[in-house]
Design a protein around this nucleic acid. Structure first.
Lengths: 176, 176
DNA sequence: CTAAATCCTCTAGTGACTAGAGGAGCAAGC
DNA sequence: GCTTGCTCCTCTAGTCACTAGAGGATTTAG
């Protein structure tokens, strides 16, 4: 079909192929581009994005960094630094250390949480709600000996899709 | 001023006073009301909300539950159950246990994260970015021995206001 | 040629708030 | 009565990192 001198663009992938190769979902790739984590991409005549190996690696980098909980600002900085191999890696180190500190802080907070929840649950004698220690503990903050700030949030995992039933929002409004 | 038979509404608080008493911020109280965590509230002639001791206690309950990371759906359920003291507390127990399980899951995930970040940071010899293990580890997922799902997210704490500089969104758009 | 798959852009939704605009009520001091 | 300053009201929009879906264009396979 094609002679040897033709250059097949065999390393240029569509967004779907790039998604499969990098493990980042298609809409997320577009979102990252919009957020400035990817450089402006070449397009086909039909306006479709094209990804080379470098972009796919960049996406994998982003994905791994996200799995480690770096936020997009930090990832932007890391990507920028990655482009300057001769600079000192002090900044890289600082970003990673900051993240590590944050993770340790959160572990400590969650352990305090765990302890309090565990106490609560253990104290429950499975009787009437009126006597329930769980409710009582929640109602009266002074019962609890742990006073940590938690910044805890039940968050959807970035890599576990977690099917959720489409619940109707019951937002009541005051009638007027 | 007022004779003994007049009934001063001394236990009816304004939203600001309720906020100070419960530790929940004013806009958050209004948000909770809109979200259906508080019953419809009486108002003054001037349309201002009035809170009695029961409502303040309810707010403190919500606050403590939020500090323990219960989401608003769980809190709605707990508040509902709290209103039926003669029922079995099995459901309360289940909600608290589910939360405990989730917290433990997140602690485990964060510990795996911590280990990987720690390895990364330790491996960095503070030289050139080109040789930086942190960047390298991020770029190549196969380097890492920890493969946990993290559902981790750098989240703003509900009780630590965390002043953030008002950054301009740099959202670039493709020129066309 | 058609049908299916993939792609495009754009808008809106998630959770649990937070920030701010623009206006109204209310108590104290003059 | 009037002003000042505080608190309150409603409403909209923003946060973060996506996700879902509409409505249409393009590409590929049969």
């Amino acid at each position: 079909m094609s002679p040897a001198e033709s250059i097949p663009p065999c390393d240029l992938l569509s967004i779907g192929a790039a998604a499969r190769a990098s493990g980042v979902k298609v809409p997320t790739i577009r979102f990252y581009e919009e957020a400035g984590l990817l450089p402006p991409l070449p397009r086909t005549d039909g306006n479709r994005r094209l990804y080379d190996t470098a972009q796919v690696q960049r996406l994998a980098f982003i994905r791994h960094a996200r799995e480690l909980g770096f936020d997009l600002d930090a990832i932007r900085a890391l990507l920028q630094l990655q482009g300057h191999p001769d600079q000192s890696c002090a900044e890289v180190d600082a970003i990673a250390r900051a993240r590590l500190t944050e993770v340790r802080r959160r572990i400590a907070a969650l352990k305090a949480l765990e302890a309090e929840l565990d106490l609560m649950v253990r104290a429950c004698d499975h009787g009437r709600i009126g006597d329930c220690r769980v409710i009582e503990t929640l109602a009266d903050h002074t019962h609890c000996r742990f006073h940590t700030e938690t910044d805890e949030r039940p968050a959807p995992p970035p890599h576990a899709p977690q099917t959720r039933p489409p619940q109707a929002t019951p937002k009541r409004r005051a009638p007027r």
